[in-house]
Design a protein around this nucleic acid. Structure first.
Lengths: 344, 344
DNA sequence: CTGAAAGCGCTAACAG
DNA sequence: CTGTTAGCGCTTTCAG
């Protein structure tokens, strides 16, 4: 019946003819033990009344909640949704609920969410993908986090070494460098990098790693074109690259887009320009997004264990707090596919 | 300082030299108004003390929370993550937090999450993708939902007409039927459908719609192969289909996989079998997953406005409650690409 | 317009 | 083992 006030613990206690405390002890396993007979009576009363504990009241009384917050830039981006999937699975194992915060990359939203999570007294917060080099914003976030930490909250970040919290560090530099070396090994000699905005850390790290690897093995620097960190950005960057090449004759034989989505956009640009990726021009990405593993031509990329990263971040944030900041490194693995055939 | 107890509203009140009630009224806009002078003093005290309201306490006192629950089968699946993205954006506009529940398709988990959401006194719950025909589970879920609704909660589902709640109905049948008609118009005559498990409603509806369209236009029934509702399932189903065709000569010229992922698996199977999709065999999917829009060959599919569906579901669940069940229909749009060229 | 006081539902000492 | 009794932090009548 819609009119009935939900049953409370005291209703259950009354119905079972026991005290409030006993009812509480019987319904949740406290350290105290209740005589089996009473235990049973309480359980029966609870189910008869359709009793559901009120998590908010419990949170108040206990001083702690069962929720963790997850901040991502865009949950519809497979990169983040895969991380979220791993984290959600791990959370479920711990009996925790995940508060999903989609920041859309907007600093204000990010700060708003952080405040909300603090209000909710979330046990922990995991930050994924808001790693900008914007100093002002970074320091405001750091302040918010510090006060959250002081309040007993726990925080971990994924790949944002600038924040003073436990971090799952993704070896963007190393992965991109390894990729460069393998490409050189395949016979490529003139590379270009398609990057995102320069203040985006992931992008900058991957760019730097690739450039370093390329320089060390070939002695030359790869060219570079910047645009958005997205499919469109990749397409535009590649289009510009092709135009430049035509104008000044500085053609490249190999292109590294700093993520798979950009690489896909680059592929589209090539197709439109009538260039056959693979035989005519090599293209590689980064991330190894699952749904993209079967595009044609197969995209060479650096595989990141995204779901594990999500799990790891939660483990880190749930683990025993330690004085010093913890770092957990995760490495990518180069996956060679048809988009970068050995160069004959 | 890590040792300091977080400031409470009474701390603020004392600091500002006003009563608890006044502090409360000043800090949240209640209907009562406070004199500007006091208002200011309270605000100053709050910021001086670094006061953050305790959402759990507010929830208790007010009897309502600022969270909504979202149940999805698998957040790392782009279908669900896109819906989640739209819903999360809409939630942010309403100042609501989203509790993400990843059921993994497991009925027990689903029920556990539902119970948790009820405990949390979530304002509303949106169910996406657990539409199975399992009667026992469905009725248990229906019971849980009913008691949640009785407690004042709101529920909406995406495409699960069996549940007694407001629903965003996806026209799977109509979309698949329209696709069938277009394919016939393109000149195809012998079709096969790659379906998921028969107790999965989306799959069954798309299958039925396609079959109906095909039958009405050609007078013949499409063949059918069932497997998992996944990339692997699509690959396996297609492989089996090709083997059968070879054995009994009943070759098809056109294959409809009930979702894009299966279609992609089918593409892989074709490639492996040395069949060129497009010229030799047409393949179509359903959903129009964004990251897949640029695979080669371009996949013909039925585009679903996934993000809008998420938004719509939240609107529905937040809207004024009405006695009768509301349904909001969403239609797909056939998108023809290279995987189904006009047949000459 | 402001303050006092009564809860919201539950847990956790503290006594029996 | 069980019951009594304070709160947890905030909102909201109900009086001033």
């Amino acid at each position: 019946m819609a009119g009935e006030r939900a049953a409370t613990l005291s209703d259950v206690a009354r119905e079972a003819g026991v005290s409030l405390a006993t009812a509480s002890r019987a319904l949740n396993g406290s350290d105290r033990v209740v005589r089996p007979e009473l235990q049973e009576r309480v359980l029966a009363a609870a189910s008869k009344l359709g009793y559901t504990p009120n998590a908010n009241a419990q949170a108040m009384a206990r001083g702690s909640t069962e929720t963790v917050g997850l901040l991502v830039k865009d949950i519809s981006d497979p990169y983040f949704s895969t991380i979220a999937g791993g984290l959600a699975d791990e959370a479920e194992k711990h009996g925790l609920l995940v508060m999903l915060c989609n920041t859309g990359g907007q600093p204000e939203r990010e700060q708003k969410f952080l405040a909300a999570l603090r209000r909710q007294r979330s046990r922990a917060i995991v930050l994924a993908g808001s790693d900008t080099a914007d100093v002002r914003h970074t320091s405001e976030v750091a302040d918010l986090l510090t006060s959250y930490l002081d309040g007993g909250g726990r925080v971990a970040a994924i790949s944002q070494p600038r924040l003073p919290v436990d971090t799952v560090v993704i070896d963007n530099h190393g992965g991109a460098k390894a990729l460069a070396e393998q490409l050189v090994g395949l016979g490529y000699r003139r590379a270009a990098v398609l990057t995102g905005p320069e203040d985006l850390l992931v992008s900058a790290e991957r760019h730097a790693g690739f450039a370093e690897g390329w320089l060390e093995t070939t002695g030359s620097e790869p060219a570079c074109v910047s645009d958005e960190f997205s499919w469109d950005g990749g397409r535009r960057a590649m289009t510009r690259l092709l135009e430049n090449g035509r104008n000044n004759g500085a053609e490249v034989d190999c292109v590294f887009a700093v993520n798979d989505l950009m690489a896909l956009g680059a592929l589209a640009a090539c197709r439109q320009a009538g260039i056959e990726v693979g035989p005519e021009l090599a293209v590689a990405g980064f991330d190894d997004i699952a749904t993209l593993r079967d595009v044609t031509p197969g995209l060479t990329t650096v595989r990141l264990p995204l779901a594990d990263i999500g799990r790891l971040a939660l483990e880190l944030v749930l683990g025993k707090p330690s004085a010093e900041l913890r770092k957990r490194s995760v490495h990518g693995e180069v996956v060679l596919r048809e988009s970068t055939p050995p160069r004959s």
